[in-house]
Simulated assay, not measured.
Amino acid sequence: MRPRTIRSILWTLAVRTGFALGLPGCAELAYYRQAAVGQWTLFQASQPVAAVLADPTLSVELRQRLETARDLRAFASTDLALPDNGSYRSYADLGRPWVVKNVFAAPELSLEPRRWCFPVAGCLSYRGYFEAGAAQGLAEELRAGGDDVYVADISAYSTLGWFDDPLLNTFIGWPVGRLAELMFHELAHQRLYVADDTAFNEAFATAMGRLGAERWLERHGTPREREEYATDIRRREQFLRLTADARERLAAVYASSGDEAAKRTDKQRILTQLREQYRELKQGWGGYTGYDRWFEQDLNNAKLAGVSTYYRQVPAFLTLFEREGRDFAAFYRVAEAIGQLPPPEREARLRMLSAPFRLAGKPVPLVSSD
């Protein structure tokens, strides 16, 4: 494991949690303290997977999950050309169902997310916290200022290879396909990260997660695991279709010449319709309730904008993978070249690659239902 110097810890926190380096004020110092303590606590809780497996009191279920994760980790490097390092070769139980809480915000009558800009990381469309109270404090401040706010429970994040990211209790029990997605998604961040472009980074990692999971299941999954994953993908695509339609209708309202009162009324009407459409949709899901919490809490511009920011460019990377002959090493090379383009050219290139999906009316796949 790489030495955990204060300098490298600060850099990492800036990139993945929105930690502002070198900025004055008590608020930033408090943010520094919770971020540093949270990251250090995660490190301290981590144990090598081999050591955890050697514990005779380990539950059968956790043993099986860690063994599966160990196989997925090896597959990531040997078959997907993802970084071969110490990440996901240790395990930590944090005693809670999330590792960080990310705060998203958007104006009351806009789908453009708020961004927090930092010296190293560039601008991010969220701000992350290890302390739930601190996240809620920022959320309340933003709400008081009139913003729509969404506080998301995040199951995992990547330190971009600066540290060895551990497997966590927050996701180790997920179905095999989703576990594979998450691990490959986070390792993809170590493979390619473009400063100041959240949409690019998350779309690349999301595509990589799905492509890698499909490759794993094709070669090593059981028929039940493959069917379970296919069902999960179908649900997520239906979910996205609903949210994309709602975003389009909201965007039209916000861009209209109506007064603010009328826009607020239309906004609530569209969000109410979205909930009703979801209830109708899930009637065909056989009792699956995985998206209930998403629709019940903080259904607003911040949440809908987050879906768009993270996933709208995924089709570009799926198309790119096909064009490169489904070869991961070649796919990475071209993706890296696109990432080096000036932002306007990068955006134009990704729009062009997304065209086959738009013309076919295909939805963008999601990674999780946080």
Score class of each variant (00 low, 15 high):
Gly339Val: 02
Gly339Ile: 00
Gly339Phe: 07
Gly339Gln: 01
Gly339His: 01
Gly339Leu: 02
Gln340Glu: 14
Gln340Ile: 03
Gln340Trp: 11
Gln340Met: 13
Leu341Gln: 07
Leu341Ser: 13
Leu341Trp: 04
Pro342Lys: 03
Pro342Val: 02
Pro342Cys: 02
Pro343Lys: 07
Pro343Met: 08
Pro343Asn: 07
Pro344Leu: 06
Pro344Gly: 08
Pro344Tyr: 07
Glu345Ala: 14
Glu345Asn: 10
Glu345Lys: 12
Arg346Tyr: 00
Arg346Gln: 09
Arg346Thr: 00
Arg346Cys: 01
Arg346Ala: 01
Arg346Glu: 01
Arg346His: 07
Glu347Met: 11
Glu347Ala: 13
Glu347Leu: 11
Ala348Cys: 10
Arg349Pro: 00
Arg349Tyr: 04
Leu350Ala: 00
Leu350Thr: 01
Leu350Trp: 03
Arg351Trp: 14
Arg351His: 15
Arg351Leu: 15
Met352Val: 14
Met352His: 15
Met352Gly: 12
Leu353Trp: 00
Leu353Tyr: 01
Leu353Ala: 05
Ser354Lys: 06
Ala355Gly: 03
Ala355Met: 12
Pro356Ser: 08
Pro356His: 13
Phe357Met: 06
Arg358Asn: 11
Arg358Met: 13
Arg358Trp: 13
Arg358Leu: 14
Leu359Cys: 02
Leu359Gln: 15
Ala360Thr: 12
Ala360Gly: 12
Ala360His: 06
Gly361Leu: 04
Gly361Phe: 04
Gly361Ser: 06
Gly361Pro: 02
Lys362Met: 03
Lys362Cys: 00
Lys362Asp: 05
Pro363Asn: 04
Pro363Val: 03
Pro363Tyr: 02
Val364Lys: 05
Val364Glu: 10
Val364Asn: 12
Pro365Thr: 06
Pro365Arg: 00
Pro365Ala: 01
Leu366Asn: 04
Leu366Pro: 00
Leu366Ser: 02
Leu366Lys: 01
Leu366Ala: 04
Val367Pro: 04
Val367Tyr: 03
Ser368Thr: 11
Ser368Leu: 11
Ser368Ile: 04
Ser368Glu: 13
Ser369Arg: 01
Ser369Met: 05
Ser369Ile: 03
Ser369Tyr: 08
Ser369Asp: 13
